[in-house]
Amino acid sequence: MPEVIFPGPEGRLEGRYHPHKGKRDAPIAIILHPHPQFGGTMNNRVVYNLHYKFHNMGFNVLRFNFRGVGRSQGEYDQGIGELSDAASALDYLQSLNQNAKHCWVAGFSFGAWIGMQLLMRRPEITGFISVSPPANMYDFSFLAPCPASGLMINGLGDRVAPPQDTVTLVNKLHEQKGITITHQEVEGAGHFFENDHMDTLTNSVEEYVQRRLTENTR
């Protein structure tokens, strides 16, 4: 998988880009990693597995390191700068895939929070995956209204982002019209979907995304 360096708001950003050769209209997906100050990188196990799951479904996929992580330049910026990094990454991905018919964003933990903010800024995003959204730590009230349908998935054994906070967030989003928020809870899974729970996570994502893609092509 080729390493890529592309321009961000505070200098270069480091990523991994995984295209399908010869597919000019392949859908695209961007994968966002967890909190930079708590060891989050683009090589996080959840991010890595989501990346490959999207690629196996036919997407051209980009994951990258937020500013100050790995070889990405800059310093942690409380989520404000990281949102700008994500927008730059999406710009870069779109520049390589100008014929893509579908655009998805997937984020894990802190990355889920950034991904939902990106969703609000970019109307071309057609679907989202939020894994272990930290609704107890960050304000998601900006989702008013949420502009696209998506999947929120969390573990019932999550001690970092308690499941009840995710339920409260999903219930608020369910009140909005025109979108459908699918919520799945994985029995026994913690915040990081350790052990066999990773397969449950990625299989759930695949089932959801494939269904959405089939619906959009009818």
Rank of each mutant, 00 (worst) to 15 (best):
A135I: 05
G150I: 04
N60I: 04
M57W: 04
L93S: 04
R16G: 02
F64M: 01
A87Q: 09
R63E: 02
M42A: 13
A26K: 07
P133E: 09
R121T: 01
G127Q: 03
S204V: 06
H18L: 13
R218V: 10
R218F: 09
G127I: 03
G188S: 11
Q210K: 15
E10G: 08
D199E: 15
T182W: 03
G22A: 15
M116G: 00
T41W: 08
E175H: 15
M198F: 12
Y76K: 08
N171H: 14
L96A: 08
V105Q: 04
G11K: 11
H174T: 09
Q98P: 03
G11A: 10
R24Q: 13
L13K: 11
T180S: 12
P9G: 10
A112K: 03
D158R: 10
Q176D: 12
R12Y: 08
S95Q: 09
R159N: 14
E124A: 13
P34L: 02
R159G: 08
A100T: 06
N60Q: 11
K177W: 00
M57P: 02
G115T: 02
T168E: 13
Q184P: 04
W113A: 01
R121W: 00
G68H: 09
F59G: 07
F6Q: 06
K172F: 04
K21Y: 14
T202F: 01
G79C: 11
L13Q: 11
M42F: 12
L50S: 10
R211I: 02
N216T: 07
L118R: 13
Q117E: 12
S149W: 13
D77H: 07
P123F: 07
L151A: 02
F54N: 00
L62E: 01
P7K: 09
H102E: 14
G150V: 04
P2E: 15
S72H: 08
R71E: 15
E10N: 15
G11T: 10
P27D: 05
R12M: 06
G15P: 07
G107S: 08
P123V: 05
A29Y: 01
V47E: 06
D85Q: 03
S132C: 13
